[in-house]
């Protein structure tokens, strides 16, 4: 199962945002997309999710052409998107409800995932009672419980403080190892990308095109201060600096 992006470009009212993106995502890999602000990385992710349409080019998920959003591509947004009128448990079972699963089945699946992030005690809480970090965990688990083929994440930890962010990064890796999801993760934080990814796609400034793809072969759990980590980080940062200077 893989994702194939062919000759994708995006213009918004004559303003080019993405230019000629060609990319293949491997089954089960953790792919990060980084780039300077406004380079169109979020737009690219939303097009993959089917929330926006490309101007030219096509995307295939398992050889099926993508035309709109679907349960096969789960999405974790940057903003908090839990449904405020539903409890944590009801949020997580949302997708399962849509599929028509019975209540006890739904609850069983949901509780498994909630245990993964340590929130099983909060199943009856409402989103307004949770902290930011907790809300994003629930959002991740809600997407995962739906068993999507791809998990798309748009800077999900950007609004959180450093400690929570680091914690959630580790948790995400743990979940990923357990579930074997294919994850496409967009971030502007190079550190985060180097910590998490199998491969890192570096986009240019607007209109975004692929400048370079790095393969990260460091063993997890990665030491942020190790030589290999810092070298790779430095390389990526240099490319990005050039992009920003050119503008």
């Amino acid at each position: 199962m893989s994702l194939k992006i062919e000759k994708l470009s995006k213009k918004f009212k004559d303003r080019p945002i993405l230019k000629n993106i060609n990319l293949e995502v491997e089954d089960g890999e953790f792919l990060c997309i980084v780039g300077p602000s406004g380079c169109g990385k979020t737009t690219l992710l939303r097009i993959i999710a089917g929330l926006e349409k490309p101007t030219t080019g096509r995307i295939f998920a398992d050889n099926r052409l993508i035309t709109g959003p679907g349960a096969d591509r789960g999405f974790v947004f940057q903003q908090y998107t839990l449904f405020p009128w539903r409890t944590v448990l009801e949020n997580v079972t949302f997708g399962l409800e849509l599929k028509g699963l019975k209540e006890d089945e739904r609850e069983k699946i949901a509780m498994e995932y909630l245990k993964l992030v340590g929130l099983e005690d909060f199943k009856d809480a409402y989103p307004y009672e949770l902290s930011g970090g907790m809300k994003q965990r629930v959002a991740i688990v809600r997407a995962l419980a739906n068993n999507p083929k791809f998990l798309l994440m748009d800077e999900p930890f950007a609004a959180l403080d450093i400690q929570t962010r680091n914690l959630l990064q580790k948790e995400l890796l743990y979940i990923w190892e357990k579930t074997n999801e294919t994850i496409i993760f967009v971030t502007h934080n190079v550190d985060e990308a180097v910590f998490l990814a199998d491969r890192i796609v570096v986009l240019s400034a607007r209109p975004g095109r692929i400048l370079k793809i790095f393969k990260v072969e460091i063993e997890r759990i990665r030491d942020r201060l190790s030589k290999e980590f810092l070298t790779l980080r430095g390389e990526i940062l240099k490319i990005l600096e050039k992009e920003v200077k050119l503008r």
Binding site: A49, G50, L51, G68, P69, G70, A71, R73, G74, F75, F77, Q79, T81, F83, F94, G95, L98, K99, R142, A143, N146, L152
Partner: peptide, 11 residues
């Protein structure tokens, strides 16, 4: 964004 979230959950 709530509507979009629902769509990505298959609604």
């Amino acid at each position: 964004v709530l509507i979009e979230a629902a769509c990505t959950l298959g609604a």
